[in-house]
């Protein structure tokens, strides 16, 4: 579903954000992507969403390759791969329903389907009663639910989440995680970037990928880091067993990065 092969991303004047990163996420998997600020989490998500192109290597998502997908065709990928953000990225001044409907309208959904589908999506995220409220009147957790409902509007195969609980309290964060679990149970592949280790520890069955300086240094699918042990400062790994949804890895260590083959 998602495959990064020896991906390097270099920014002029800022050095390498990613350094020969290789990883693979199979269909229906759920994985956390952790690491310190600047470790390359967001860059990885942006590359998977094809908001950027790699300086070297290849990203393949849902059959679309970074090497061959033209910029004007990125919309084809975006209808299969959704993205939610820490800052929600909702349209202020519009209601929850209008925000969700917007995603359907701009992707050409038939007019008669837009409102019932938007209502249904908001009901799925527990916001049926607040669909007519402007988003600025909703709490952070509720706004994130609207963002998730919008992300699900086009029935994506993959959901990328960049610190989706970063602005939320613990209760709201748990609520969002339960929502993600439900979506994952429905077959949506989820890759969620977070630096909230408490949250990671609370879900030991979810696969954990840790980045440091643009390289994958730990994968709970392997149980140990590329250096033979979990990296310092991010130490949930020894207590986290393999995700049931994660196959046994056929791990290959290559060029300092870890390549994990999923299903």
């Amino acid at each position: 579903m998602i495959e990064l092969t020896h991906v390097t991303k270099e920014y002029a004047g800022r050095g390498k954000a990613l350094n020969r990163l290789s990883l693979r996420l199979g269909k229906g998997e759920f994985a956390f992507l952790t690491g310190h600020s600047g470790s390359g989490k967001s860059t990885t998500l942006r590359l998977i969403h094809m908001a950027e192109t790699p300086s070297a290597g290849e990203v393949v998502v849902c059959g679309f390759s970074s090497g061959s997908l033209a910029p004007h065709e990125v919309w084809k990928l975006r209808r299969r791969v959704s993205h939610v953000f820490q800052d929600f990225r909702l349209l202020p001044g519009r209601t929850a329903l209008e925000n969700v409907a917007f995603a359907l309208e701009v992707t050409g959904a038939p007019g008669s389907e837009v409102e019932p589908r938007s209502t249904r999506l908001l009901a799925q995220v527990g916001l049926a009663a607040k669909s007519s409220l402007p988003v600025q009147e909703l709490s952070g957790g509720e706004r994130q639910r609207v963002a998730i409902a919008r992300a699900m509007a086009n029935e994506p195969l993959v959901l990328l989440a960049d610190e989706p609980t970063g602005n939320l309290d613990e209760r709201s964060s748990r609520g969002i995680m339960e929502l993600f679990r439900d979506l994952n149970a429905q077959g949506v592949t989820i890759l969620m970037a977070t630096h909230d280790l408490e949250l990671v520890r609370a879900y030991p069955d979810i696969r954990l990928l840790e980045l440091s300086e643009g390289q994958l240094v730990f994968d709970s699918g392997l149980a140990t880091s590329s250096h033979g042990q979990p990296s310092a400062g991010t130490d949930p790994a020894p207590t986290i067993p393999h995700s049931p949804s994660t196959p046994e890895p056929k791990a290959v260590q290559e060029s300092g990065a870890v390549q994990v083959e999923g299903s």
Binding site: W75, R78, R79, S82, V106, T107, R150, A151, A153
Partner: peptide
């Protein structure tokens, strides 16, 4: 611009935007 970015994010074609 936020509206345009969101349209891009959710998969609207450039022509449509």
């Amino acid at each position: 611009k936020d509206e345009i970015q969101i349209m891009r994010l959710v998969g609207a074609t450039n022509g449509f935007i």
